[in-house]
Computed example of a mutant assay.
Amino acid sequence: MSQQIITPELCDWITEQSRAGHPSEAILGAMVGSGWDATVAREALARMLGGAPAAVVPVPPSSSDGYTPGLPEPDLVGRPSEIDAGDRKVKIVLSLREPRVVVFQGLLSDAECDGIVEAATKRLARSETVATNSEGSEVNAARTSDGMFFERCESELIRRVEARIAALLRWPLDHGEGLQVLRYRPGAEYQPHYDYFDPAHAATASILKRGGQRVGTLVMYLNHVEAGGATIFPDIGLDVMPVKGNAVFFSYDRPHPSTQTLHGGAPVIAGEKWIATKWLRQGVFN
């Protein structure tokens, strides 16, 4: 994993947690459990609170315990125009290093897009997000879409797509959540947000037991949108247009705004937008 830096935002967060009455041991545990290196976390606490707890804090398990080191990452050595994803070649449209953002062309065939949409249609319900002040999920005004989740490898089509993603991003198939499919009607949007789990949230400790932090996101476009519906990255001024079969990937090495992975779904102006999202975890998701 890339070097972690103690940012002003992290320092502010530590100060807020301390003022809220959380002991330093709990703050340290939340940071480590959310993906921060224990040594960096201790240094940050010492800097802000005048000393870190002496007790040894568990670090994320090693690869032998079901965790894969580093981050999901396509093989872009030599700046290739396309890469092998196992059963097909996928073209590279755009690649940013900081933050890591890659746009792929032709990740899915038209038939695969149509098959996913058809299978998802009868299972759609109003999309939810992690509940604001408790565990579980809830309907959120910031997310005006309909959605559903496939079980991992629940059909031959889903298995084939997930295997391709695993090969493309060089990340184990079982380190990913099931595909989520979303439909956005005209006017629907998803306001800018982060995909990692907030270390300060009440539900995070429980969520992390199922595979650790999210470390990467792949958004696949399942149809052509008449107007609107771009995936936007406000921090870096990037808009990715929804083109059927294409996808945008981004990764984040810590649960913090310094990753510059703030993103959202711009309102659909005309037509509908269908996407499938794959979230990648540190460890085996179950």
Rank of each mutant, 00 (worst) to 15 (best):
Q3D: 10
Q4A: 04
I6D: 02
I6A: 01
L10I: 01
E16K: 10
A20F: 07
P23F: 06
A26W: 03
G29W: 02
M31T: 02
M31C: 13
V32N: 03
V32T: 06
G35E: 13
W36A: 01
W36K: 00
D37C: 07
A38E: 12
V40N: 08
A44C: 13
A44N: 07
A46K: 07
M48V: 11
M48W: 01
G51D: 06
A52E: 09
P53S: 01
A55M: 12
V57N: 08
P60M: 11
P61F: 04
S62K: 14
S63G: 08
Y67Q: 02
Y67D: 05
P69L: 03
P72M: 09
S81P: 04
I83K: 09
I83R: 05
G86L: 05
R88N: 07
V93E: 04
R97V: 03
V101T: 04
F104K: 05
G106E: 05
L108T: 10
L108Y: 12
D110L: 15
D114S: 06
D114G: 07
I116D: 02
E118F: 01
R123W: 04
S127W: 04
T132Y: 13
R143N: 13
T144F: 12
T144C: 13
S145V: 02
E151A: 11
R152N: 12
C153L: 15
C153P: 09
C153Q: 12
E154M: 07
E156A: 10
E156N: 11
L157V: 10
R159L: 15
V161T: 08
L169Q: 10
E177F: 09
V181A: 11
A188N: 14
P192H: 02
D195S: 07
H201F: 12
A205M: 03
S206A: 09
R210D: 13
G211D: 03
R214Y: 07
R214G: 07
V215Y: 03
L218P: 13
H224V: 14
G228M: 00
G229R: 02
I236C: 09
V240M: 07
M241L: 14
V243F: 09
G245T: 10
N246A: 10
F250M: 12
S251W: 14
S251D: 13
H256R: 08
Q260T: 13
G264K: 00
G265T: 00
V268F: 00
A270S: 09
A270Q: 02
T277Q: 13
